[in-house]
Design a protein around this nucleic acid. Structure first.
Length: 729
RNA sequence: GCCGAGGUGGCGAAAUUGGUAACCGCAAUCGACUCAAAAUCGAUCGUCGCAAGACUUGAGGGUUCGAGUCCCUCCCUCGGCACCA
């Protein structure tokens, strides 16, 4: 009597076994080559996982499992990026401690992720809110401070009046807060800044050395916004003072008939400046179309060459010269490079973040907390509510704020700002290589062994935020000699998000979130995994379809039933065609996984299973090949079937199947015959048939005769083994 | 406006990169099994046509023996940037 496929039973059984045997633990150092696969670690929200979360985890799990089978010492870690506003807001609402909420949420996430059979190395799990972790985030901040890359500045910041928090430029979308959509206000505040602009060129040049999708590179280049030009002084009042303009076209200076300064800057408005090229007096105007925070905030108006300048000149009846003389690039002014990239506003006036580890001493000024006093831990507070004055809730904890200066021993106050939630995620991939280390953020040896990350998959929405920030931190650490490579990630890919059935983004507020628990319950984790990989191209956004889940489930049922057709002991495929298909399948699945072609890999496996199903008997070799190739996608069912075949070791530690190049082409070929480029017939030919034999046979076919009778065959084109085109006209 | 990715059956999609367009799957229709339904199995399934055949990859041109794929001119969708001088 045959046993039915019962995913529930076998999935929990094997998950336990894997945990006990620890087969996914990555050992440090090994004779094997290493491979480091990485996904963006999740923010453990109270809502739990939705079906969109695991798509990248499963995708990289497939890659990781294949790499493991190919003999790589593979590191595939996970952790929790747990600082941030939602948890803090939840704490404000419920009075629950953020520490407790974080624990509950990450426990729930862990359970959900583990139920999907993803081969994470849980022994390296990290949590950015763990003082043992953020001790090193603070230590890294001190390094920035030490090297002059962290500084305090009074700047107008983007202030969200609802979240009561300062935002980085990257967090403002269309003038609104990225999180809550509230109109952002400008507020002057003392803020901690990180000088990412000092790394603009390195971040730009580094892009040439990494394997990222073109759209990611383009977006980062765009964001950095490097432009080369010149600053030119236009003298006023006989040289007493001057207006400095920035232009990328200093060669057009002879055509500059006026200057425009940014809207608010009006002390020069109405005056005249001297064009250093023509020595003519040109009027100074102000206009909104000139940005105060780009270049010098002033431009020279060249109406003959610039569309906006022309419109402005026509409106205000300013002179337009055509046919002016072009200058050399460096004849006037000084060559400069400008960027759109701004320094990173690094402080937040909130509670749930890493305290910035400095104290303010009346005598000594800003004093870093000594390394041996790290971490500066978050104190327990009663009220997490931020203040309207813009101060952190930490400012109210006087026993924490009041301290002594580490330098002079006098009275000092702690910094009450915390870091943005991007801090912990800017270096987490480094911590994974040595997540328990109390002496260093990670040991040199382990960094040297594991980094850089070989393959990092994540969302497009992080391109100008996390991805850029973490590249910046890594470049900085490289310059300090702490990490072995400047670029942290060799290869970056991105997944498309999963939308709801109607094609809308899933979110709690829309109430359209689908929980993977309900899917695993009904179909099994393997079905969910195969479905998410099969539903469409991995890099493309795609709508969830409840109906379509049965396809992958039927496929797994089919594989399950194949076990009853296996004739044990028989080791090879039956005929040459069967063998060809097997080798083609191995090649296609192997190649596809490397290129994120998970959907086509599964399609190929389905074809193979369909063919085996039609056979009277299936050889053990054929069935095992199918199982091995399917194992990265459906780890539980394949493990079960593998063990049913009598194997005592795990399928996931077996060598990945290899294909034989010489067996990829079948002896029997189908030759398609075209007449004047239109398909008119086909016939089976032997691999060894010559061109003239193919032509001879094709001309004899009745369906071809019909088209060529009474006409002259002018020429023919033969693509060996594929197509013969007979040309008449 | 600039940069990037796209546009193929009722739906998700494939196409060895210039060589049989629509693989695989979903849905649908018919049939077998069943008292019945589900499940399963078999068949059909781009459009028009009884058929022979013709047409078909956003539109229109071109190159080629042959174009979804290459070139030119447009249109549309999505993502990013944007008075950036």
């Amino acid at each position: 009597m045959s046993k039915d496929y019962d995913p529930k039973e076998i999935e929990s059984k094997w998950q336990k076994v894997w945990e006990e045997t620890g087969i996914y633990h990555a050992g440090d150092f090994s004779d094997k080559p290493k491979y480091y696969t990485l996904i963006e670690f999740p923010y453990p929200s109270a809502d739990g996982l939705h079906v969109g979360h695991p798509r990248p985890y499963i995708g990289m799990d497939v890659v990781s499992r294949k790499k493991r089978m190919e003999g790589y010492n593979t590191l595939y870690p996970i952790g929790w990026d747990a600082f941030g506003l939602p948890t803090e807001n939840f704490a404000i609402k419920t009075g629950k401690k953020p520490q407790v909420v974080t624990k509950e949420n990450s426990d729930n996430f862990r359970r959900q992720i583990q139920s999907l059979g993803i081969s994470f190395d849980w022994a390296r799990e990290i949590n950015t809110t763990d003082p043992k972790y953020y001790k090193w985030t603070q230590w890294l901040f001190l390094k920035f401070l030490e090297h002059g890359l962290a500084y305090k500045a009074k700047i107008p910041i983007n202030w969200c009046p609802k979240d009561k928090i300062g935002l980085a430029n990257e967090e403002v979308v269309d003038g609104k807060c990225e999180r809550c959509g509230t109109e952002v206000e400008q507020k002057e505040k003392e803020q901690w800044m990180l000088a990412i602009t000092k790394y603009a060129d390195k971040l730009l040049e580094g892009l040439e050395t990494v394997n990222y999708p073109e759209r990611v590179k383009a977006q980062q280049r765009n964001w950095i916004g490097r432009s080369e030009g010149a600053e030119i002084d236009f003298k006023i009042d006989g040289g007493q003072t001057s207006v400095k303009v920035f232009t990328t076209r200093p060669d057009t200076i002879f055509g500059a008939t006026f200057l425009v300064v940014a809207g608010k800057e009006d002390k020069f408005t109405g005056k005249y400046a001297t064009n250093p090229a023509t020595q003519e007096k040109v009027p100074i105007w102000e206009a909104e179309y000139v940005m105060s925070d780009y270049g010098t905030g002033s431009i020279m108006g060249v109406p003959a060459d610039d569309e906006r300048d022309r419109v402005f000149a026509e409106k205000h009846r300013l002179p337009i010269v055509e046919n002016y003389k072009k200058a050399g690039f460096e004849d006037f002014g000084k060559k400069v490079v400008k960027y759109k990239l701004r320094d990173w506003v690094f402080s937040r006036q909130r509670y749930w973040g890493e305290p910035i580890p400095v104290v303010h001493c009346e005598k000594c000024g800003i004093v870093p907390v000594p390394e041996d006093q790290l971490p500066v831990t978050l104190p327990e507070v009663e009220n997490y509510q931020p203040t309207d004055t813009g101060d952190s809730p930490l400012a109210n904890i006087s026993e924490w704020v009041n301290t002594t200066c580490p330098k002079c021993g006098g009275y000092a106050k702690r910094e009450t700002d915390v870091m943005p939630n991007w801090a912990g995620s800017s270096w987490y991939f480094l911590r994974y290589v040595d997540s328990k280390n109390d002496e260093k953020f990670a040991s040199q040896d382990k960094l040297k062994y594991w980094t850089p990350v070989d393959w990092y998959n994540g969302g497009m929405e992080h391109t100008t935020l996390h991805l850029l920030y973490s590249r910046f931190w890594n470049h900085f650490l490289y310059d300090l000699g702490f990490v072995p490579t400047a670029e942290p990630y060799k290869k970056r890919t991105s997944h498309g998000i999963i939308l709801d059935q109607k094609g809308d983004k899933m979110s709690k507020s829309r109430g359209n979130v689908i929980n993977p628990d309900s899917i695993t319950e009904r179909f099994g984790a393997d079905t969910l995994r195969v479905y998410e990989m099969f539903m469409g191209p991995f890099e493309q956004a795609i709508a969830w379809s409840e109906n379509s889940l049965v396809g992958p489930r039927r496929f797994l049922e089919k594989v399950w039933k194949l076990q009853f057709k296996v004739s044990k002991g028989q080791t090879l495929g039956t005929d040459s065609q069967g063998l060809t298909l097997m080798h083609q399948t191995i090649k296609k699945v192997s190649d596809d996984i490397e290129e994120l072609g998970f959907n086509t890999a599964i399609s190929t496996l389905m074809i193979y299973a369909n063919v085996l199903e039609k056979q009277e008997k299936v050889s053990q070799k054929e069935f095992e090949t199918l199982l091995l190739l399917l194992a990265p996608f459906a780890p539980h069912i394949t493990e079960e079937l593998w063990s049913e075949l009598g194997h005592s070791d795990s399928i996931h530690t077996q060598p990945w199947p290899e294909y034989d190049n010489s067996k990829l082409v079948s002896d029997e070929l189908t030759i398609v015959v075209q007449v004047d480029g239109k398909v008119r017939g086909s016939f089976e030919a032997d691999k060894s048939m010559s061109e003239s034999e193919v032509l001879e046979k094709a001309l004899k076919l009745s369906e071809i005769q019909k088209w060529i009778v009474g006409k002259e065959v002018k020429k023919h084109i033969y693509v060996p083994g594929k197509v013969l085109n007979i040309v008449l006209s």
